[in-house]
Write a protein that binds this DNA or RNA. Structure first.
Length: 233
DNA sequence: GCTCAAAATGCACCCCATGT
DNA sequence: ACATGGGGTGCATTTTGAGC
């Protein structure tokens, strides 16, 4: 049974998430906090496996909270729960294992829990194990967030920062099509203002690297007039 | 802290594919 | 045939990191 702590400044959101976690029969909620400052002082004692964290809180943002937690010796899997998708990249920069949008979909939550359990099983670590780097398994990819490396089919892919961000973003949403300007905005966190040439160059480089490493296990497909999507074989 | 080299990123241009 | 969208290449600029 995984131990979880929920931090959210809305009591209803906490109750809803707690109920869903209890129904999953695989997660035990050992702490609930409305105030992130209270949570911070207690979380090191509780030593949870998973931390469900709201991003938009009055006293301290979830991103800021996660950064503070990262500085401690105890590593836990952080799952951000928010109503806003634009926080996604920032969230993953602070070791988020997953990112769930409100209103929470129960099946999506179960998948997240399963993935965390699988990951912990694979890596063989318990709640108090210190990892060298955070590994996120998506499809046939293993993303090593801290080193910026990606492993696919036992082959290591060396990517630049932007290439990693693009691939990481697309891999989390396989089959979903993103218009170049939309993708640019999400990765660069600013409007492309019609300038997506840079993105095209990175996509081109990624394709070459993906093909040499994985053959056709995963590829970035252009849907003419609509955008790019990542497909797994 | 400075310098220099390497890597990353961005941009311009050209070519190709597709739709009309 | 033409217009448009997309991909590839080469070069310029910026950023990063190592060495001193």
């Amino acid at each position: 049974m995984l131990k979880a702590v929920i931090v959210d400044d809305e009591i209803l959101a906490i109750h809803l998430l707690e109920a869903m976690l209890m129904e999953s029969n695989s997660v035990d909620v050992i702490g609930k906090f409305l105030n992130p400052l209270d949570a911070y002082t207690n979380i090191l004692k509780l030593k949870p496996d998973i931390l469900f964290l709201d991003i938009e809180m009055a006293e301290m943002s979830g991103i800021e909270f996660a950064s503070k937690i990262e500085e401690t010796a105890h590593l836990m899997d952080i799952v951000f729960v928010t109503a806003y998708e634009h926080y996604a990249l920032e969230a993953f920069n602070v070791q988020a294992v997953d990112y769930i949008l409100k209103p929470i979909d129960k099946e999506r939550l179960i998948k997240t829990i399963d993935r965390i359990r699988q990951r912990r099983g694979k890596l063989g670590f318990s709640a108090n194990t210190l990892l060298d780097e955070d590994i996120k398994i998506i499809g046939s990819f293993h993303f090593h967030v801290h080193s910026g490396r990606v492993y696919i089919a036992n082959t290591s892919l060396v990517l630049s920062t932007k290439e990693f961000q693009i691939l990481f973003f697309l891999a989390q949403r396989p089959g979903q099509i993103f218009h170049p300007s939309e993708l640019y905005k999400l990765i660069w966190a600013e409007d492309s203002i019609g300038q997506t040439k840079a993105l095209k160059v990175h996509i081109s480089n990624l394709r070459k690297k993906l093909e040499s490493a994985s053959g056709h296990q995963a590829k970035i497909v252009t849907v003419r007039g609509y955008g790019y999507q990542l497909l797994f074989e």
